[in-house]
Design a binder for these strands. Sequence first.
DNA 1: TATGAATGAGCTTTCATTCAT
DNA 2: CATGAATGAAAGCTCATTCAT
Lengths: 214, 214, 214, 214
Amino acid sequence: MIKSQFLKPRTRDADRSQQAILVAAREEFAKHGLGGARMDRIAERVKLNKRLIYYYFASKDDLFLAVLERSYADIREAEKQLHLTDLLPAQAIRRLTEFTWNYYLQHPEFISLLNTANLHQADHLLRSERIREMNSPLIQTLGEILERGRLDGTLRGGIDPLQLYVSIAGLAYFYLSNNHTLSAIFGRDLMSHEALGERLTHMCDLILGYVLIN
Amino acid sequence: MIKSQFLKPRTRDADRSQQAILVAAREEFAKHGLGGARMDRIAERVKLNKRLIYYYFASKDDLFLAVLERSYADIREAEKQLHLTDLLPAQAIRRLTEFTWNYYLQHPEFISLLNTANLHQADHLLRSERIREMNSPLIQTLGEILERGRLDGTLRGGIDPLQLYVSIAGLAYFYLSNNHTLSAIFGRDLMSHEALGERLTHMCDLILGYVLIN
Amino acid sequence: MIKSQFLKPRTRDADRSQQAILVAAREEFAKHGLGGARMDRIAERVKLNKRLIYYYFASKDDLFLAVLERSYADIREAEKQLHLTDLLPAQAIRRLTEFTWNYYLQHPEFISLLNTANLHQADHLLRSERIREMNSPLIQTLGEILERGRLDGTLRGGIDPLQLYVSIAGLAYFYLSNNHTLSAIFGRDLMSHEALGERLTHMCDLILGYVLIN
Amino acid sequence: MIKSQFLKPRTRDADRSQQAILVAAREEFAKHGLGGARMDRIAERVKLNKRLIYYYFASKDDLFLAVLERSYADIREAEKQLHLTDLLPAQAIRRLTEFTWNYYLQHPEFISLLNTANLHQADHLLRSERIREMNSPLIQTLGEILERGRLDGTLRGGIDPLQLYVSIAGLAYFYLSNNHTLSAIFGRDLMSHEALGERLTHMCDLILGYVLIN
DNA sequence: TATGAATGAGCTTTCATTCAT
DNA sequence: CATGAATGAAAGCTCATTCAT
């Protein structure tokens, strides 16, 4: 019964309340993880009664799932706006890389939520059909781009779009997710404007060096 | 004074108790995160009194920190055994890549602990001097390897060892950390023997393609 | 809206619950002190969920403070009912002495709470403005009485109302507070009807002998 | 079995340890009360193993009793040094008043311990024969003084020595015991050198005004 | 005499959740 | 649609006390 929308839509007010709850919950889950998140704090943040959260979202777990679905929907929506199919293959790959980097950079809660979801071993994902539906398109698009590139001779053949996508994401994700740890350990500020620029350059070098012929 | 395992009973051994607690705690934290971990379950696992955990580790947070320090020490120790400086530069890079992949693959708790530590924004790390001290050597070693490669003409110049290290780790980490999510979304089993082999190949292609000249 | 005790069940009445908790807590703190009091027993006494105590009073310390404030308010309220200003000076002093004695006698919990508050060195008082405000009037009233007596020639001059008040209270308080100890040591029952009468007589002799001229 | 000494004497070292424990325990009980006192802190204070405390004093309650017995013995011993029987009756009463005041003033722990003992309703006292034995002499002495005064015409007759003793103690005790509360409430520093002097004067006025003829 | 290791029971406090309106 | 009152279960942590040496 969770495969419905992540909202229970009724009136304008109801809708606004639900949206507000989702926003507050996202912050809370991102900041404290699933186990550390407090329903009380979420209610406090929204300035709405705790009971109302249960009215709309049934349980903490379901609320987390709704937050996760929403976050995935957001990034997929943003990816759609890239219009990668309108670009030359190499340009498309670069654009995807830059986009991924910037999106993660600007949405640290997304990284945190992913972390939490992974910790709990995709329990939530398995219960949601929406998320599964929301991902395939990107890989398919990426596959088409790679194929176009292979045909026009600009990109190497034999590249698994899933592997490539995971690599692009991983290069951005690990740097940002571990930035506190890494900064503490190496005594370098990895979040300075300069450092961030260097990282993106490094990522593009790696990825494009890999896909481009010569 | 002679701590023979035959003469000594399993109790009244401070060091053994502490080690056992650390092991049990690592499993618990890895499985449930910091907020989700239960001191009761840890005590239950070790078959020691809960009070004893506090006797030795003072608090849940401190225990987590101890677990983290221990895990870092373990991987650093393993890295030392690689003797990267004895290898040719390109070989060394490949070996580090393979090692990182295999270590993460064989120590999923380490990934999970890192996740948790990151979620809590390195609060714990900042409180620990030990961890900070344990990391620098690897980056330095990597820097020396890159320099050797540059001098003997096998590797490109201008590579930041930290960026490279983060990339190697990120390529392995994201795949493994998100494997449940990714598997669920894409309907492919990313942990099959075959899939794992493909990933390592892909990683090496990416990294070596980047560092090697030509 | 109509809070009839017949229509309303015993639950769902915030105010009544809070009052009931305060009463139960007063008994518990009086009997066992701050450290010895048990939140469980308080909840048990009120037949309300333990959690509810924290819902209303936040912590054990805060609950104790609330109990203390309430007890001070009670005695101050009772003192007001004495209408000391309507009496002749000597009569007023006697009445205050008798009242103090009787109030302490009939409210042993008050003595016990004072004991506990003193043990913890007024930590609680310093955190409460309410208590501070509740005491000044009595000393002022007493000062006016003494002044009236001085003017009409019935009472000696130069008496500090605070010293006098503390003496009246001390004469009653120590006897009652230490009655167990004293009874045990001297093998006399200090709480018999007769003994109590003797004590009050002794107190009045002392106090009035001091304030009266001749 | 507690009616023995408050110490288990053996060797010099043993004796010193026991004395040290008693001193540390007195401070702890005085500061935190019976329920709030911590055996751990006592051990910490003495820099002796916790187990040793149990070896010498069997339990927390017994330790408190030993502390109490010791404190009573101390004050009785001090009272003996007054040699009240060598003085004129009126002088003896004044001296006892001054002594009581000064002793309480210089031994705030004693007041605190009394408080705690009273809170726990003389449970401890009933279990100790030593204390009972240690008190009678003073009241008897006081009785003899009053009788001497009556005979030589300096003091009124019909004064109950117990009542008088309780009054003297109460006048000092309440002021000191409640000083924090009173100071907080009335905004006067009751412990200043000046204020203390005034209190003693007031006490002597009260007591001597009562016992002296004319 | 002295100690570090270990424990069971119980403490205050917390939390997700439900009830009654 | 919205809320304050109430709860059972359990969490982290503490404590007096005992064990083994």
